[in-house]
Amino acid sequence: MGRTLPSITQAFLQEQESFARFRRALRRSDQLALDDLFSAAQRHVAAAAYASHALPFEIFLLAMLLEEHKQVMRLRQLLHDTWDE
């Protein structure tokens, strides 16, 4: 209601929608992985909104990388702990 700009969630969904053709052509397993990436980005929409970047997709890409890196850190820690035992 009465918005001059799309909300960040709308912007996010638009970006996701714009990759629909790309997603469709992927294998099912790859589609699921792609969905995971978008879910990861969606967890940071608040920060993306605050950034109010002219190209929000850059922020979403960074958010995906961020979550990926968190996973790497977590796995690294797990490996580390296993070796210690």
Partner: peptide
């Protein structure tokens, strides 16, 4: 437009 993008925001809502 850039001013508008920065100004036309609501409160901070995290996930």
């Amino acid at each position: 437009a850039l001013d508008l993008m920065q100004a036309d925001q609501g409160g901070l809502v995290y996930q």
